[in-house]
Simulated scan of single mutants.
Amino acid sequence: MLENNTTMSNSVSFIYAPNIIVAPGTKYVDDFEDFQKRVLSLLADIMKANWTGLGIINLIGQTSNKKVIITPDPINGNACAEDRRNPSWGNAIEIPISVEYVKGTGKKSPGFMPDEIILHELIHAYFMHHGAKQDMALFVPPNFYYHTFGEFAAILLTNIYMSAKGRQVLRRDHTEGQLTGMCSHDEGFLILHADPNQFGYPYSQFPHEKLIWNLTEQAPELIFNYVRHENGVFNPVRYYLNTLPERRLRELRPRSGEVFHRTDELEGEAMKFLREAERVEKEGWTK
Rank of each mutant, 00 (worst) to 15 (best):
N5F: 13
T6H: 13
T7P: 00
S11A: 15
V12G: 08
F14P: 06
F14K: 06
F14M: 05
Y16I: 03
Y16C: 09
P18Q: 13
P18K: 15
P18V: 06
I21K: 12
K27S: 14
K27Y: 13
K27H: 13
D30W: 08
D31Y: 14
F32R: 11
E33V: 13
D34V: 13
F35M: 10
K37C: 08
R38S: 14
V39A: 14
A44E: 13
A44S: 15
A44R: 10
D45R: 10
K48E: 14
G55I: 05
G55T: 09
I56W: 03
I56V: 14
I56P: 01
Q62Y: 11
K67I: 01
V68W: 09
I70L: 09
T71N: 07
I75V: 15
N76Q: 12
N76P: 06
A79R: 02
A79F: 06
N86E: 15
P87R: 10
G90Y: 05
N91Y: 10
A92W: 05
E94A: 04
P96A: 07
I97M: 08
S98T: 09
E100K: 10
G104W: 14
T105P: 07
T105R: 05
K108M: 01
P114R: 09
D115P: 00
I118H: 11
H120W: 04
H120I: 01
L122F: 13
I123F: 03
Y126A: 03
H129G: 05
G131F: 01
K133Q: 04
Q134K: 01
Q134I: 11
A137Q: 12
F139H: 06
P141S: 11
Y146S: 03
Y146M: 06
F149K: 05
A153G: 00
I160M: 05
I160K: 02
Q168D: 08
L170G: 05
R171M: 03
R171S: 03
R172M: 02
T175K: 01
E176P: 00
L179S: 02
T180S: 11
M182F: 11
S184V: 02
D186S: 10
E187C: 00
E187K: 12
G188C: 05
L190T: 03
D195Q: 12
P196E: 12
Q198K: 15
G200Y: 12
G200C: 11
P202I: 08
Y203K: 11
Q205L: 14
P207I: 12
H208N: 13
H208E: 00
E209L: 10
L211D: 08
I212W: 04
I212P: 07
W213F: 05
N214G: 01
L215S: 01
L215C: 02
T216V: 01
E217V: 06
A219M: 02
A219T: 01
I223L: 01
F224Y: 15
N225Y: 05
V227C: 07
V227R: 06
R228W: 11
H229G: 00
F234K: 02
R238H: 06
Y240G: 02
Y240H: 10
L241S: 09
N242F: 05
L244F: 13
P245V: 04
P245H: 05
P245N: 09
P245I: 03
E246W: 10
R248Y: 14
L249P: 01
R253F: 12
S256H: 14
V259Y: 11
H261W: 11
L266M: 08
E267F: 10
E269G: 04
F273K: 02
V280D: 02
T286R: 14
